[in-house]
Amino acid sequence: MSFSGVLSQLLEIVIAIALAPLLSGWVNQWRAWLQNRSAPGLLQPYRMLHKLFNKESMVADHASSLFRMAPYLKFGCMVLACSIIPTLSTDLPLAPAADTIALVGLFALARVFISLAAMDIGTAFGSMGARREMLVGFLAEPALLTVLFSASLISKSTSLTTIVETLAHRDFAIYPGMAFAAVAFLMVSLAENARVPIDNPATHLELTMLHEALLLEYSGRHLALLEWAASLKLFAYSCIGLALFFPWGIAEARAPAAMLLALPALLFKLGVGGFLVAVWETVNAKMRIFRVPEFLATAFLLAVLGMLVQLLLAR
C-alpha cells in the first residue's frame, strides 16, 4: 500500500461524494432543456440536500430502528461501491476487498435493506414499492453479474482494477461479446437507477412509481441521505459503464501523475454520458410495469449471449 495509492483512494471517494449530485443536476438540466422547459440550476441537487438536512426528520410512531438505520447503511454501501470502482486510477488499496461479484452483492445488500425499511412502516405504498424494487432487483442483479462475467472472461479476473487495466492498457483489441454486454448493461443500469423506461424520476404518481414508493415515509436528513445515495448509485453505474466500455484515461497503478489527466477525462465522459441519458429519457416513454420483467429478462439473456459470443470468438 503506497502513499499515492492511499491518496488516489481518498481522492476518489471525495470526488464521488462531491460530484454525484452534480451528475444528477446535469442530467436534470439537460432533460429540462431538451423538453423545452426552463431548467433548474446545475447546483439544485446540492441546495435540495442542504434544505433536507436542515429539516427535522419525521418518523412514523411505530417505525423500528431498522427504518432509521437503512438510509445510513445505503449511503455507506454506495460510498464503498464508488470507492472500489476505478474511476480515476486503478491503484486503489480498498479494491482487493471486493471484486465484481462482491460489488454486485453490495448493491444487493443496499437494495434488501431499503426494501425492508420500506416494508417496516406497513403502508400499502411501501410494501408495493418494496415488491417492485425486489422484482427489478432479482432480474437486474444476475444480468449485471453476467455482464461483468463477460469482462471477466476477457481479463481472466473478476477484480475490477485488473479488468480495467486489461481493457485499457494492453494491446487494443475489439471484443465483440462486449457489444452484447454493453446493450445489456445499459438496460440494467436504466432499470437499477429508476430511469425511463422502467421508472420516471420526474413523477410522484403512486401507481407508476418505483423508487419514490420506497422513500415515501422518509423525510429530513434520512431522505437527504437516500437521495444522495441514489445519485451516488447513478455515479457508480456510470463509472462501471465507463470502466468497462470506455476505460481510456483511467490512471494506472504505476503512473500517479496520470491522475491529473484522469479527472478531466472522467468529467468529459460523464458529461457526455449524462447528456445521452437526458436524450434517452426525452425520446422514450415509460413502459408498463408488467413489461418490466420482459425488459430485464431480455437484458439478462443478452448478457448471457455476450458471454457465449465471447467464448466462441476467443478461441
Binding site: 483489441a173 471484443y175 465483440p176 452484447f180 449471449l305
Partner: peptide, 24 residues
C-alpha cells in the same frame, strides 16, 4: 491488420444482436 478481422467479428456480433432484437 489484426484489428480488421476483429472488426468483422464485431460486426458479426452486431448482426446477431440485431437478429435477437428482432425476435424480441
Amino acid at each position: 491488420s489484426a484489428l480488421l478481422p476483429q472488426f468483422v467479428n464485431l460486426l458479426g456480433a452486431v448482426l446477431l444482436l440485431l437478429a435477437f432484437a428482432m425476435t424480441s
